[in-house]
């Protein structure tokens, strides 16, 4: 039984919370910015191609301009040479934004425990979801996308995200 405004005006009005309606919109229209550097980017290509079809989750509008994107997918190894660029591109994305570290290299450096490889991109930018695998299967990318969607569901438009993050380049 409807209460309040809905009881008076019937089906023509729907009341909800601002957070719920905004998050619903954000969840199903994520625009990924693919920061593809290595092998994982090839698996992202598979996730985007016909068979796995990322558009089933409303995230097929792949933007290479960070200014038009809200989901950063870091696909591949990040070297120290690349790190300042990753940080700058992250900063160019407007809030709210989410970051997925795809694969072992982006999550932890992977097999490359050496002088040139950043041991996980969370040393530079905040990360929301990590995907394991070297490289992960496309299904794992889709799983991460659903995890981000779940996370967005629980967020509030009033709160800033990751305000206190401090990486090695800050």
């Amino acid at each position: 039984m409807a209460l309040g405004l809905e009881a008076k005006l019937g089906d023509s009005v729907l009341t909800t919370q601002l957070d719920v309606v905004v998050n619903w919109g954000r969840q199903y229209s994520l625009w990924p910015m693919v920061f593809g550097t290595a092998c994982c980017a090839i698996e992202f290509m598979s996730a985007a191609a016909s068979q796995h079809d990322i558009s089933r989750w409303g995230a097929e509008v792949v933007r290479f301009s960070p200014r038009q994107a809200d989901l950063m997918l870091v696909c591949g190894t990040i070297s120290y040479k690349q790190a300042p660029i990753l940080k700058r591109i992250y900063e160019q994305m407007p809030e709210p934004k989410w970051v997925v570290a795809m694969g072992a290299c982006a999550s932890s450096g992977g097999v490359y425990d050496n002088y040139c490889t950043v041991q996980g991109i969370d040393e530079i930018i905040p990360v929301d979801v990590y995907i394991s695998g070297c490289p992960p299967r496309p299904e794992a990318v889709l799983d991460a996308l659903m995890k981000i969607q779940d996370q967005i569901k629980g967020e509030s438009v009033l709160e800033d995200r990751h305000k206190d993050f401090k990486g090695i380049l800050d």
């Binding site: 550097t37 290595a38 591949g76 190894t77 040479k81 490359y112 050496n114 002088y115 040139c116 490889t117």
Partner: peptide, 25 residues
């Protein structure tokens, strides 16, 4: 050099068969 991952230095510390997975990449 943006994807320099130190293959050659890493390979010096692996047995020949252990390098095969590195060559995949």
């Amino acid at each position: 050099g943006y994807l320099h991952r130190g293959f050659e230095k890493t390979a010096e510390d692996r047995t020949y068969n252990q390098i095969i997975p590195l060559t995949d990449r």
